[in-house]
Amino acid sequence: MSSSDGRFLTPSNHGALVGMAVAIGMVWTILVFSIRIFIRLSIVPPFGQDDAAASLGLIVAVGQATATLVSVHYGLGQRESRLTNSQLDGFLQSSYAAAILYIIAIAASKCSTSLLIARLTRTKHHLIASHSITVFIALWALASVLAIAIPPWDSEKRLKSYQPDRYTRWAVIEGFSMAIEGIIFALSIYLVWSLYMPLKTKAVVVGAFFCRILIIPPTIVRLRFLSSVLHNTDLTYDSVNPAILTQVVMHFSLMACTIPCMKQFLRAFDTDLGHTININQKSVHSFTGSGKSRSQSHGGSYVLHSIDKSGEASTPTRSAGHQLSRGVEEIRLRPEKVLSRADVSRANADEAQEEHSFYSEGSERAIIRKTQRWDVTFHAEQREE
């Protein structure tokens, strides 16, 4: 049988199933990655380290998919007895490359998620935890690649003691991989645990990172299929299911590292009905009480602004000749002869060191902030004629 017959699905050739899995996975991965690039270039710049890791993962995934298709060309999915020695060697070499690239791709997706968590916070212990996990992932990837690469994959060892030994290595590698997914999920919980925000909001944040936990079931199934290959004598034909599950795990892992960024993408298409987005993006973060930037406000106190129908905060009309010692100007809120003033101040002035959490170096819309407690005081005095 010629190797070109791998394009067709027959009872003795299942290589086309692998080709379909590769095609579907690449389409979805590229689509989701394009959304991520759109978010970083148009909605929430800049392009950060987490995006660079995701980009690396996509590039490696393209290489892994190519190596998988080459293995299909050389006989993956076909009966081993119908392949020539040159075809079998080509299958083994391409499968060897695909296995190494698979590890690098999923490691890049894990690093992208841990770096994204580091991007979402400016708290020191959160940053230490996130970067520590990133370093651990890199070390795991290096050790895993060496475990698969040594000894080399050759035709003389494939059906003997080398193959069971390889399954043992895969079991250890995937075991650490699933443990890392659990650690990343636990880190997302740790990220929002001490924040003062509604439980529903915390659940949304944690739920976005929970998607990575869904990678664990197909990983377990993949190991199960790899184990079943040990008990069969037809390596090329019985490797179809592990190859398909490899594509599922790799592509879903790459897509999962973008899911926490999707809210920013959906915000770009918001119609502003109900003022669900523009208010907290502009009126809350862009204006301070005295019409100045946050760094110019005094004493942690702000004057309330009116919000028009467009969701923008309108600049208050200043009362002539009235300036408070704390730097907050009085505003004429009512036309009658009553002098009214609304002051908003933080309950604890010693918390001023948390001010940098609101800036986060220009990437404030993608950062989870610590909630401050504020006191609102209203004053009304009879205005002199």
Rank of each mutant, 00 (worst) to 15 (best):
S4H: 06
D5F: 10
D5R: 06
G6W: 05
G6A: 09
L9W: 06
T10S: 12
P11F: 00
N13T: 11
A16P: 09
M20V: 11
A21L: 08
A23F: 06
V27C: 06
T29N: 01
F33S: 03
I35R: 15
F38N: 05
L41S: 08
L41A: 09
P45E: 06
G48T: 11
A52I: 10
S55T: 12
L56G: 09
V60W: 01
A65Y: 04
T66F: 13
T66K: 04
A67M: 06
Q78H: 08
E80H: 00
L83I: 02
Q87C: 02
L88F: 10
L88M: 13
G90E: 04
Q93C: 03
S95M: 06
S95N: 12
A97N: 01
A98W: 04
A99L: 05
I100D: 04
I104S: 04
K110I: 10
C111M: 12
H126L: 04
I128Y: 09
A129T: 07
A129P: 14
A129V: 03
S132K: 00
I133Q: 01
W140L: 04
A141D: 03
L142E: 01
L146P: 01
A149F: 06
K157G: 14
S161W: 09
P164N: 00
Y167N: 05
V172N: 08
I173V: 11
E174C: 14
I184T: 08
F185Q: 05
L195T: 00
Y196I: 10
Y196P: 06
T201G: 11
T201V: 14
V206S: 04
A208N: 13
A208E: 10
F209K: 04
F209S: 00
F210A: 12
I216Y: 03
V221A: 05
L223Y: 00
L223F: 07
L226C: 05
S228Q: 06
V229E: 06
D234K: 00
Y237M: 02
D238I: 12
D238Y: 11
S239T: 08
S239V: 01
V240P: 00
Q247L: 02
Q247P: 11
V248L: 05
F252E: 03
L254R: 13
M255F: 10
T258W: 01
K263Y: 08
K263N: 10
T271H: 14
T271K: 14
I277W: 02
N280P: 05
N280H: 11
S286H: 11
K292E: 11
S295C: 10
G300I: 02
S301P: 11
V303E: 02
L304M: 01
L304T: 02
H305G: 02
S310A: 13
G311Q: 08
S314H: 13
R318L: 13
H322R: 12
Q323H: 10
G327E: 11
V328K: 00
V328G: 04
E329G: 00
L333V: 03
L333P: 12
K337H: 15
K337Q: 14
V338C: 13
L339S: 15
S340H: 10
A342F: 13
A342H: 08
D343F: 14
R346Y: 11
D350Y: 14
D350H: 15
A352C: 12
A352H: 11
E354N: 15
E354F: 13
H356K: 07
F358R: 03
S363F: 10
R365W: 14
A366L: 08
I368G: 09
I368E: 07
R369Y: 09
R369T: 01
K370G: 07
K370I: 03
R373V: 08
V376P: 12
T377H: 13
T377G: 07
E381Q: 04
R383D: 12
